[in-house]
Design a protein around this nucleic acid. Structure first.
Lengths: 123, 123
DNA sequence: CCTATACCTGCGCAGTCTTGCAGATATGTG
DNA sequence: CACATATCTGCAAGACTGCGCAGGTATAGG
């Protein structure tokens, strides 16, 4: 199969079949971009720590997250804003407390691989 | 159990048990940092595309990767340098061609989830 | 209504990262 | 040896990112 786009065909390939395999393996650029964005969310120690905490503790407040992670309230809030905007977590208000939980199944799945999630009843 | 470090104990928690669950779920900071670094490698579209290509095509040259991804030789080389330095891929010289393959099982595993890796004989 | 608590937001600085250019190195060929 | 190919590297510009400070909003309680 000839998966190489016309505009690149003029260049000399070294292993034709590998080029085709590679192109097939890459797939939709939008899908790749989506995953890259997802991984980007997990790439910062602070955010990853928060996600692990949310994953392990379920609906948890900003203050508790700050205590558990040792981060400042502001840092936690800022990081959560990024995660919320990206759709990785969602917020639920309960009085003056706002609790966060995971909202992206794919992210949840990735986190599940990092920490076995011992006895969570949420799934 | 009281997992909250002494220096943070003075602050008012909202749900004590959730704080403890969170701390337990976070685990070793060094481990978290390691995964964050890993995710960071996958967070850039160019690198992720390259990794997917290498994953699908096996030992493949820089030139072929450039053709398959539509990136410039330089960009591919630079990205591969980062991945190589981080231990995600390894290079093997064959004449004037250098072929790359995945060298980090964890990264391999993550990629495997993104594209089912149809008929790779490498494992 | 006034205060305390819980959380959010805008802004500016500093550090990091990606990219492209230009050039260097290494290998095969005649 | 001269040349083409394949890949690597250093450097500088530009974009992006996380962090802390200061201040703003929302809810509960007296």
């Amino acid at each position: 199969m000839h998966l190489v786009p016309a505009e690149r065909a003029h260049r000399n390939t070294i292993d034709d079949h590998r080029v085709c395999d590679a192109i097939a393996g890459i797939g939709e650029p939008t899908r790749v971009a989506g995953w890259a964005r997802r991984f980007g969310l997990l790439s910062e120690p602070g955010r990853l720590t928060l996600l692990l905490a949310v994953h392990a503790a379920g609906p948890i407040s900003v203050t508790d997250l700050a205590i558990a992670t040792g981060m400042s309230d502001t840092s936690v809030s800022q990081a959560l804003r990024v995660l919320r905007t990206a759709g990785a977590v969602e917020a639920h208000r309960d009085g003056r407390v706002i609790r966060y939980r995971l909202s992206d199944p794919q992210v949840h799945d990735l986190l599940h691989r990092l920490s076995p999630c011992p006895a969570t009843t949420s799934h």
